[in-house]
Design a protein around this nucleic acid. Structure first.
Length: 640
DNA sequence: GTAGGGTTAG
């Protein structure tokens, strides 16, 4: 049961992550200056002026002169000066060689003037691989994939041989599901050209495979790289983290760290993503200590991931402390804080923070902002405010077109307000076909408000479009059970057996003394304290029954008798984790439990009794949100 | 001269 998460155990010979108290100095020594992103050069700030003076006086300029002045313009991203240099070439009838024309492409691209760059490119009497790659890269950086791709094809057809720069650029463009097919073809070409051993090509290649979900292929590319650097190592760690393979991400970080890998701000941002997924608070705090002391550049990015780590570890106040101390904030920073409040059901804080964001001229709300605000209003019991904000959105107040997810939030808002009929009508009038997630949200609302009519309609439709999702059957079964329709519960169970539903195995975990303890539903087999644990859950259940707890058997859809159903319920992973926490912590200590799926009604009720009878604050993170339970009352208002 | 990894949601 302790399983693979043992990397967090204190029994390891070496510290699992570099601890702030012991190894800061060592880490500082490892911190690479070379890996810091390039900053615009500030040397020779008057070169352009000197050039312009000379040009005004009618001097002609030679190759070296143009080269140095263009370099300066590129470094300073000075469009105006660059344009004057370009105009001077034309005026003096200077015919720039390929090299200088390529410099002009780079300059215009850096100044965000893609059209000018393309014009220079089109007017080139001859082109080499560098000028082609510069132009392809320009399109790729501005997310103009189709133009970049068509140029790449033209380049190959014209007989110019692609080099490592070209391949790295094109592969980066192919990262993402839609580019995978092309990426594979590029990979074959790379193998033919024997470019694969190049570290830039290798890291973009592994990233391309990982972003297509092919983590094994990504890993094997990584393992066969002839050398590694901070980018290729970080790409591998980030790939695991982005796919939710958090333990693998941390294992990889530990391995590479022990092998002397350099880390930079991107590495730590990726490590924090993995720690957020695991809700490994004590390790997240250690990383926090590090990044402060290392004084890494790009603080905004790092602080954003720190905020998110604290949020996902159940510490919204810590997130806010970071947010308040930030010298500058991006839209992502605001979004991260809004999402934090939303997941923690802090509706008023969401609304207030959104108000402050609108007052800040430096940032502009985007689609994610509105998603966070709408879902925050829903989870935080501010339904009317949420509906108003959606109306404002439709009116164009935020200049953001509502997308499917925003419509989904409205269904959630209406459902939570007990307006299932209106939500149903809203779905019918939406400009989109409802996704399973939207139908699921309405079904959940019908369960809470015991609306059998609409619930049945929506539930059966949902099972039709998403027959493999066991959660749908369970919620509809809850609904049938609560209205006493036992015959329907039986029929539903048969239907589920027929469709051979495979449920994602339930898993919960709890962090105690820097070790994550994981529990799988119905399987405490390998844990040293298994007997004690099962006995404890039984004992708790019996005690809670005296206080009014009634096991909700409709949460079990197996075709077994009630006694067996109760046994299955007692084996739910979050109950095992809660019992483990009660046994191993001192009286009155808070319990922080994480679950990979949505919490079931019965476990939610069980957790409320834990808090009430044992005087423990329980913080439970499920797939969708946090449940903060104090004295038997949950912050979700029993709606999730 | 041209190039690779990252933070919020789902």
């Amino acid at each position: 049961m302790r399983g693979k998460l043992q990397w967090l155990s204190q029994h390891h010979h070496q510290p699992p992550l570099p601890l702030p108290s012991t190894s800061i100095r060592q880490l500082s020594a490892l911190s690479p200056t070379s890996a810091h992103p390039r900053t615009p050069s500030t040397r020779n700030p008057h070169l352009s002026e000197a050039f312009l003076d000379m040009a005004m006086q009618g001097f002609s300029v030679n190759f070296q002169g143009y080269d140095s002045v263009l370099t300066e313009c590129i470094n300073r991203r000075s469009f105006r000066d660059g344009q004057l240099v370009h105009a001077h070439m034309i005026k003096t009838d200077y015919k720039p060689p390929v090299y200088l024309r390529t410099r002009l492409i780079v300059l215009y691209n850096k100044c965000d003037c893609l059209c000018d760059a393309r014009m220079v490119f089109d007017e080139m009497p001859e082109r080499n691989v560098v000028s082609w790659t510069a132009m392809i890269s320009a399109y790729s950086q501005r997310e103009r994939g189709s133009e970049a791709l068509s140029l790449f094809v033209q380049m190959l057809r014209s007989g110019v041989v692609a080099n490592e720069f070209t391949f790295a650029t094109v592969l980066t463009m192919c990262a993402g599901a839609s580019g995978f097919h092309l990426g594979r073809q590029v990979h074959s070409l790379i193998i033919k050209r024997k470019c694969e051993a190049h570290i830039f090509v290798g890291s973009s290649l592994l990233d391309m495979y990982a972003k297509a979900g092919r983590i094994q292929e990504a890993r094997s590319i990584f393992e066969t790289l002839p050398e590694r650097d901070v980018v290729s190592c970080t790409a591998m760690i980030a790939s695991y983290a982005q796919l939710g393979l958090d333990e693998e991400a941390i294992d990889m970080f530990r391995r590479l760290y022990s092998e002397g890998m350099c880390s930079n701000y991107v590495t730590y941002a990726s490590v924090l993503t993995a720690l957020s997924g695991l809700a490994a608070l004590s390790y997240g705090r250690q990383v926090h200590g590090h990044v402060i002391r290392l004084e890494l550049p790009f603080r905004v990015v790092l602080e954003n991931s720190l905020m998110d780590m604290y949020s996902k570890c159940g510490k919204p106040l810590c997130s806010r402390r970071i947010f308040d101390s930030m010298p500058e904030r991006s839209t992502v920073s605001w979004n991260a804080m809004l999402v934090c409040y939303s997941k923690h059901g802090m509706g008023e804080d969401v609304v207030e923070l959104f108000r402050l964001m609108k007052e800040d001229d430096k940032v502009k709300p985007d689609s994610i902002t509105l998603l966070a605000v709408l879902s925050g209003c829903s989870h935080g019991g501010m339904q009317n405010r949420g509906l108003d904000i959606f109306d404002e959105m439709v009116e164009g107040k935020y200049e953001i077109e509502p997308e499917m997810e925003h419509y989904g939030c409205v269904v959630d808002l209406l459902g939570r307000a007990g307006l299932a009929e209106r939500a149903f009508e809203f779905i019918r009038r939406m400009p989109f076909e409802p996704t399973p997630a939207i139908l699921g949200s309405l079904l959940g609302a019908c369960r809470v408000h015991s609306n059998l009519n609409i619930g049945q309609l929506v539930g059966l439709r949902l099972i039709e479009v998403e027959p493999e999702n066991a959660g749908n059957y369970v919620i509809l079964s809850n609904l049938y059970a609560s209205s006493g329709s036992w015959e329907d519960v039986r029929r539903l169970r048969e239907l589920m057996m027929e469709k051979a539903v495979v449920k994602e195995p339930g898993r919960s975990w709890i962090e105690l003394e820097q070790t994550l303890h994981t529990f799988h539903a119905g399987d405490p087999s390998s844990h040293p304290e298994k007997n004690e644990l099962f006995a404890k859950v039984r004992e708790l259940s019996a005690r809670f029954r005296e206080a009014g707890y009634v096991p909700d058997l409709s949460c079990v859809l197996h075709d077994v008798d009630d006694e067996q159903k109760e046994k299955i319920l007692l084996g739910h992973s979050e109950k095992l984790a809660l019992a483990f926490g009660l046994i191993n912590t001192s009286e009155g200590a808070s319990l922080r439990v994480m679950k990979n799926l949505r919490i079931c009604v019965d476990c939610h009720s069980f957790a409320k009794f834990v808090s009430k009878i044992h005087g423990r604050n329980v913080s439970l993170r499920d797939k969708n949100r946090f449940h903060h339970i104090v004295d038997g009352v949950c912050s979700c208002g029993d709606y999730w």
